[in-house]
Design a binder for these strands. Structure first.
Lengths: 396, 396
DNA sequence: GTCTCTTTGTCCTGTGAGTGGAAAAAGTAG
DNA sequence: CTACTTTTTCCACTCACAGGACAAAGAGAC
């Protein structure tokens, strides 16, 4: 199939496309119920969309008591690529235009190997997905990277954990390689968009999405739109001070949240505890694997290990402390906790909740759910697909 | 003059009104340069605005090298009332439709006396401004109150320092009394709007406006619009923990920012210091006035009193600490410091700057001005006028 | 099966908003 | 006084759109 290059010609068409994306196949009549257009106008716009090939006819719909209507749907051949580059692994997924995941693969990888090496791997993974028959090509791709991004240009700026990526024209380069439009954003923002599109945040306009992975970040959604800040570094909460005169952090300060709780910090603390003989469980895992990660801590905690539980609880307290401040400031309608460390699950969540509900004022917390993300590792790639579809489904 | 009741009939008219508000009198041709409308269309919309009386002809403009054009301006008889209710005083001002302050009075008053008593005083002050010939009536009023507000209805919700105001229909009641449309908002949000309209934040889309008065609050502006949060309590940073296990706060927690630094806390600390004989300057002021306020501390600091300077510096450190966290989170393009305590001036500002620049990451602080508000006590009332004009100048 | 009613889809015309050219009006510069 | 600008008004033409009329297609009653 020839790749689609068309874009909606006006706001009406854009609206119809998003309705079809979020609501699946629809009859013309059903579409008419959802938009405020005359039948004639609607027919014209739908015809134009059919001409572009973005949308295709799809048989007859069930009768609603009279003549059956012809269904309309987004071209089922459209394919979006969602890429979520984490600090230590990459997720790549293919979706259709309705953002349903058709295939998803994950591979370990160190982002510090630099953009060239990483892209090579990403392209190989994309090729693998293609080879398995899920796609013949891509109509657009969304890329998440673990650091701040100058959004309009799709270029990482001063990313602390991605040496060698600073200023690299990710959008430009991948657009060349993939031969399709590309949008780049911070991985945390994409997770937020994912949870908003298909997860727990579907109905909330203002919410926070805290991602605890190798580092800690926070996606901010205001009025349904991701807020990125003046220089694209909004949500960078890992270096907020959680403990006065606390642990030294890579950033040069002391007591940063990230220095006290994150995938990396947790691994370090667990190793230390194991070496000091505080936990037999952790020590045995250390010996078996030759090293500990957050996953080991999660497993130990699940097995009832007191030391592991303590580590999680303490980290949750620090995180909750910081989130409490953000809740007072931002007054969100929902807080989503996600990221690789969600395996820590309810122990972590309970600690965070305790802190937030205790420290923030009732007006802000009164009706504030604090929940785990619903999509797990899929959130990032779904958000990435959503990012590029938002771009392509907006008037040129 | 009969009060205006008209509203713009469409977005074009609304746009023209704001251009005239922010740019003063303009010729049709100049307006045409700023909006994307054909001459004919522009003429039609201008004529309609003239019909409503919101806009009047205003003689001939200077020639730009050809025929002189007829000037158009907002009706010079329009009057807005800006009311800023603080914890301990009230500001009331009259502006014209271009939001120029025509008269401004301030009176001490305790907000805890309740809405009825306060409104009596506000109405008296408004009457005084009328009596001095500045206005024959008001076309709209903006009201700022020191606590969270359910914005659409204009009703305070659970305001900590305003017992008796919870649920009081401020908008409704004042609209009745004044006989004009009224909008109500948090005083901090209005200060932010004031600085945005006529102060230091004119060109910035995303900024924070920290008001240090009897309490501490923060106005949040996202994309040029005030962000109020899910329940209207966004920016309530006074109860963010600044000192672990610090001073007990009225809210029931310990170590809240407001417990360590605010007008009230400063007065208390200064009194304590004076009584302990730490500062002759403060002690003498205590004796003279029978009590100390933030103003006394400011004066003592200006006179070089070391204890006063220390108090300010320490407070600034705590405030800066909290702001540093907000800067990391929000990545604003500007931070404005304002409120009654601005008399503390550059000592305070220096302490805040030091903390923020040290604690937040360079990407967020690199190009981040932290400045004092430009409008002082006028910010609130100008913001209030701006609030109601935004409301009245938007399509009905 | 047949008849009637409902829903959907298409066609078509009237309307009204808006564009842009042309010319008139009002100045400036020399 | 003349030539050139800028502003404003006027007007005819275009074009998008709404909404009625009608045809197509099915459901349900009898």
């Amino acid at each position: 199939m020839r790749r689609m290059t068309a874009r909606p010609g006006n706001a009406h068409q854009a609206r119809l496309l998003t309705l079809l994306r979020d609501g699946g196949p629809n009859s013309r009549a059903q579409l008419g119920d959802q938009v405020d257009l005359s039948r004639s106008k609607l027919a014209v716009e739908v015809d134009r969309l059919l001409e572009t090939g973005l949308v295709v006819a799809d048989g007859l719909a069930a009768s609603r008591g009279g003549r059956r209507s012809h269904n309309i749907r987004l071209n089922p051949g459209l394919r979006f690529l969602g890429v979520d580059i984490g600090a230590t692994s990459v997720d790549v997924a293919v979706t259709n235009a309705e953002l349903e995941t058709l295939g998803h693969i994950n591979q370990p990888m160190d982002v510090r190997e630099g953009p060239v090496a990483v892209f090579e791997q990403v392209l190989a993974m994309a090729a693998k997905l293609k080879a398995s028959g899920l796609a013949e090509g891509f109509d657009g791709a969304g890329i998440g990277v673990p650091g701040p991004v100058r959004f309009p240009e799709g270029i990482p700026v001063a990313p602390p954990i991605m040496p060698g990526w600073d200023g690299f024209p990710v959008r430009e380069a991948l657009s060349q390689e993939l031969g399709c439009p590309v949008m780049v954003d911070n991985d945390v923002n994409l997770m937020a968009m994912g949870e908003q599109h298909a997860g727990v945040a579907r109905t909330v306009a203002d919410f926070l999405c805290v991602k605890i992975g190798t580092g800690i970040g926070c996606g901010i959604v205001v009025g349904g739109e991701v807020y990125r800040g003046t220089t694209g570094s909004a949500g960078d909460i890992g270096h907020i001070q959680a403990v006065p005169d606390g642990r030294p952090c890579a950033c040069g300060n002391r007591g940063c949240l990230e220095a006290h709780f994150s995938g990396a910090a947790l691994a370090r603390d667990a190793t230390e505890a194991a070496q000091q003989g505080l936990s037999a469980e952790l020590a045995s895992r250390l010996e078996t694997n030759g090293g500990l990660t957050a996953v080991d801590v999660a497993a130990a905690a699940a097995a009832g290990d007191a030391t592991a539980l303590d580590l999680i609880r303490e980290g949750g307290n620090h995180t909750g402390q910081v989130i409490a401040g953000l809740v007072s400031f931002f007054n969100p309608g929902l807080v989503v906790i996600g990221g690789g460390v969600t395996g820590l699950g309810h122990t972590l969540l309970a600690a965070i909740r305790t802190q937030v509900y205790r420290q923030s004022l009732p007006l802000a917390t009164g009706n504030l759910p604090i929940v785990l993300g619903e999509l797990g590792p899929a959130a990032g790639v779904i958000g990435a697909a959503r990012l590029i579809s938002d771009h392509l489904f907006s008037p040129a």
